[in-house]
Simulated assay, not measured.
Amino acid sequence: MYVPRFNSLTDEVEVRRLVATVGAGELITAGPDGYPLATRLPLVWDGDRVLLHMAWANPHWRSVAASTPALLVVTGPEAYVSPGYYTSKAEHGRVVPTWNYSAVHLTGRLTVRTDHDWLRAQVGHLTDTMESGRPHPWSVDDAPAAYVDQQLKAIVGLELAVERVEGKVKLSQNRSEEDRAGVVAGLRATGLRRDADVAEAMERLPGD
């Protein structure tokens, strides 16, 4: 991932917060014909491992050998930034459109996991993570055990041993304070949820 110095996200707490907030990523590996395969999957990042699962019927996992290199792309809020948002547009006109976004790339080695106990633990961990904060969290134990066992037969587990973490936050850090304030105001004015999320992320940047 190309990351200019001022867009680099290196704080581990913030990187993990972004990944946990999104809760899913695009798993990318090379297929048997050399072309990339990609599947979007919910995830749990636990220590130096990312735990995932996909449908047994999905052919993607069958191309994964032991320790297959893989890339997991997690993207946060993103939005189009119009030159009209910049106060500097009226001053000199030297402005162009851009795209603001946040992303984390997790690179490592992938292993397929098919054992029942691992799958049950992964699904339970993922469910508990996603349900946390709800007034009445649902638990895998709320479903009949026989039904859960049947459902587990329809999935396959994947474990990514993370070797490299790259984080990027492109939120107009290269613009003046006045231009950035204009972007925040412009994004909020669109009424789009994704634009408001980007504006909120801009306001959370250190120093703001």
Rank of each mutant, 00 (worst) to 15 (best):
E166F: 13
V50D: 05
L18K: 04
G191D: 09
A70K: 01
Y147R: 13
P77H: 02
L51D: 06
P135N: 04
L119W: 02
L72R: 01
G124W: 02
A121H: 12
S176K: 03
L171Q: 11
W99M: 08
G182P: 06
G93A: 14
H105L: 07
G191R: 09
S139D: 14
L52Q: 08
H136R: 11
V148H: 08
E200T: 13
T87W: 15
A57Y: 03
A66M: 14
A143C: 10
G34W: 02
V165E: 02
D117E: 14
V81G: 09
E78C: 13
D48F: 10
L152G: 03
E91A: 14
V104D: 01
L160P: 00
V104H: 02
T190V: 13
N7F: 14
K168V: 02
T75I: 07
T21R: 15
M54N: 11
K168P: 04
S67Q: 14
P97D: 12
V3E: 05
E131G: 04
H53E: 06
P144V: 06
K89C: 12
D142R: 02
P97R: 05
Y86L: 06
D128L: 12
T111V: 08
D11R: 02
Y86E: 04
L41F: 02
D46E: 09
H92K: 04
V165M: 10
L106S: 01
D197A: 09
T98D: 11
P69T: 05
V140H: 11
G25N: 00
E78I: 07
N100H: 10
L110C: 04
T10F: 08
D115S: 08
Q150M: 15
H125E: 15
P137C: 06
P83G: 00
W99K: 06
A185V: 07
E163F: 01
G108S: 12
H60Q: 03
D46A: 07
R62P: 03
R94G: 08
N174G: 14
T190Q: 11
T114R: 12
L51H: 07
N100L: 12
N100R: 13
